[in-house]
Amino acid sequence: MMGDEEIHALNDVSIKINEGEFTSIVGASGSGKSTMMNIIGLLDLPTAGIYTLDGINTTEMSDDDLSHYRNQKIGFVFQSFHLLPKSSALKNVEMPMQYASAYNKALTDEGIRQMALDTLDKVGLSSRVHHLPNELSGGQRQRVAIARALVNNPKILLADEPTGALDSKTSEEILTLFEDLNKQGVTVIIVTHDQNIAKRCKRILRMSDGLIQEDKI
């Protein structure tokens, strides 16, 4: 259970995101939404205050523990996909599990492969697992990235402008996928400046100047 997730961030702001929520963080560039995302994603530490994820205060964690937490609790989806260009879709999806295998000896090569294939199937890419990223369309690449984010069963799916590089039709497909995943219980946080995407979310955190200006459910 994610239970009480409190985020004290930026200009003395305090928010709490519960498990299973479908939240968007919106704001213009410079509003602090990227910093917010980096802190939520454990890529950056707040200079003051605390961030509690899944009941654990993360601000005093070691770098290794933060890596482990990112690996286990957070799945990232980026605007420009951030896939390894020379690795196939399957290898990209396997990567987080390979890092997880350092902690979990039960993860065998075969197990990792099977889980990666299952996850790719879940995002509708079972027919293109051996393709390199540059052999896939933008939408397909983002699906690979989503599969990679999901493969370790994270608590949070953290998406930074996930449709920014996609056309409207593909964007719609990706958003539908997020909605489906949310229905299956995944907590989704989308960081965007696009109001239309924000409207699809159940909760909107509107930011500017490092403050939460509006918290609309």
Binding site: H68, L84, P96, Y99
Partner: peptide
């Protein structure tokens, strides 16, 4: 550099 960032984001430790 980007690959390193991606690997770190999905859970690679410095030692990895």
């Amino acid at each position: 550099t980007k690959e390193i960032g991606i690997r770190r984001a999905v859970g690679a430790r410095r030692s990895d």
